[in-house]
């Protein structure tokens, strides 16, 4: 359990970090909750680690013009315990609470979780339902991507070598939006076998907004567009929910492992989608 030797840098500013990363040989160290276990198993052996912990600007949560900006180095505990998020974007705070255990939440970061791109990570379900964007910065340039475009595949993102994820941007939740995150936990690891996040709004008795994000089911987390379309304009009755939930995994090539077969995962995705929709609709009306 001893990792390979590496060089270690701990820059004080973003500019310094970007310069260190520009060469392409260095790897970012955030909370280390995914990277350090991989290094101990020698599944990862970076030559050079750039620890972001001293860059205070990457930890802030702030609201302006209808958006909440979350620094990539904000920890799961920071999100779970943030009064701003609890009031203005409760779905994301709720997702953070479901991650791992207290020790993992104290160190692990939202930027690290998204960059690691584990197909069963909790955040993407909620972030996809929220229509989140991510900001990527490199020496001399920056770009903003929709989360869908950032999460390319299992353990693969659109970040180029030398590029740093600095910020996650979510909308402030409108009043009367009902939200829920429902997670089927694999008891030993605490990871999601299936995780479903739902956001719904009603106006004049009809669903005017329906968003469903799923994690754990497929190689990449995804939005269930067909189910959303089924709900749009409906009254949100038990039958509407049942029919919509049946669509969440219909065209999906599901993951299979020792904990759950592909068909079981697809079935559970429907069950947890229905639970999330019921809970969200109860809040919305």
């Amino acid at each position: 359990m001893i990792p390979q030797s590496f060089e270690y840098s701990v820059p004080n500013t973003l500019q310094e970090a970007l310069q260190l990363l520009a060469g392409g040989n260095a790897k970012v160290l955030a909370g280390g909750m995914s990277l350090v276990p991989l290094m101990k198993l020698r599944l990862a052996a970076p030559e050079h680690l750039v620890d972001l912990r001293r860059i205070t600007g990457l930890k802030t949560l702030s609201e302006s013009s209808g958006e909440i900006r979350i620094g990539a180095m904000a920890t799961h505990h920071d999100l779970d315990s943030s009064p701003l998020l609890r009031q203005r974007c409760p779905l994301l705070a709720e997702a953070a609470k479901h991650i791992g255990d207290v020790q993992v939440r104290n160190l692990g970061t939202i930027g690290g979780s998204l960059s690691h791109a584990d197909p069963a990570a909790d955040y993407p379900a909620s972030l996809l339902a929220l229509g989140a964007k991510v900001k990527l910065v490199r020496a001399g340039a920056e770009r903003t991507l929709n989360l869908e475009d950032f999460l390319v595949d299992t353990f693969t993102t659109a970040a180029e070598p030398g590029e740093l994820l600095t910020e996650i941007i979510v909308p402030v939740e409108e009043p009367k939006t009902g939200v829920s995150y429902q997670k089927m936990v694999q008891p030993a690891s605490g990871f999601a076998i299936v995780g479903v996040a739902a956001r719904v709004r009603k106006s004049n008795g009809q669903i005017s907004l329906a968003r469903l994000g799923l994690t754990g089911v497929a190689p990449s987390p995804f939005r269930a567009a067909a189910a959303e379309a089924r709900l749009q304009g409906s009254a949100g009755s038990a039958e509407d929910i049942r029919q919509a939930a049946a669509l969440v995994s219909s065209n999906i090539e599901a993951n299979a492992d020792i904990h759950a077969s592909a068909s079981y995962r697809k079935q559970m995705a429907q069950v947890y989608a229905a639970r999330a929709l019921h809970a969200a609709l109860a809040e919305a009306s």
């Binding site: 280390g32 350090v36 101990k40 255990d101 020790q103 993992v104 690891s189």
Partner: peptide
């Protein structure tokens, strides 16, 4: 030694962490 059991838990600047999943240089 694989971040699961918590026997190595210590407090770092007031936060409980698993000390088997950190490098000593991170607590400088």
């Amino acid at each position: 030694e694989t971040s699961l059991c918590g026997a190595c838990t210590v407090e770092l600047d007031g936060k409980a962490v698993k000390s088997c999943t950190m490098f000593a240089v991170q607590v400088d």
